[in-house]
């Protein structure tokens, strides 16, 4: 199991696009290699990398993408041709659009738990927040997503 594809998936979800996600991946790997002395061997490498990625995203990428036109990204969706029929593609872009509308902190919680499969405790540790904060973001994000997807269905 390679970690790199998982990092790409998480980055694409955070930045709402595969190209931006790959940029984030690149910065993350560079920083991880630079600060590898801080990684305690025997602890989970993936959580450590996710935490680095998430912090970079908060610091840099998000700040710059806010300056850009967020609306364009929202309307276009991520637009990754994942194969499948027209119907499936429509559905995928609905997920993209709904995700793009979530506040960042809710999207991040959804991605860590529902896409990356982390437990509440691990996800909270990656974000650096109490578990209660994580679960409330998760629940709010999930409700919002379900509502958005129902509206469009």
């Amino acid at each position: 199991m390679a970690l790199l594809p998982r990092l790409r998936r998480f980055a694409a979800g955070l930045t709402r696009g595969l190209a931006d996600g790959d940029d984030l991946c690149q910065i993350t790997i560079e920083r991880a290699l630079r600060s590898r002395n801080q990684w305690a061997e025997g602890t989970r490498l993936d959580s450590w990398m996710y935490r680095i990625m998430r912090n970079i995203w908060i610091d840099e990428v998000r700040a710059s993408s806010r300056r850009r036109q967020t609306f364009v990204a929202e309307e276009e969706g991520v637009g990754v041709g994942a194969g499948g029929g027209q119907e499936q593609r429509v559905e995928l872009s609905m997920v993209d659009r709904a995700m793009a509308r979530l506040p960042d902190e809710q999207r991040e919680a959804i991605l860590l738990v529902m896409v990356e499969g982390y437990g509440y405790a691990e996800a909270a540790e990656i974000i650096g927040c109490p578990i209660g904060t994580l679960t409330s973001r998760l629940i709010r994000g999930r409700d919002a997503l379900q509502k958005l997807l129902e509206e469009r269905a």
Binding site: R9, A12, L18, V95, I110
Partner: peptide, 11 residues
């Protein structure tokens, strides 16, 4: 729905 959207990136 989220898996269908994001898991293909792994491949």
């Amino acid at each position: 729905a989220l898996s269908a959207r994001f898991d293909p990136i792994l491949e």
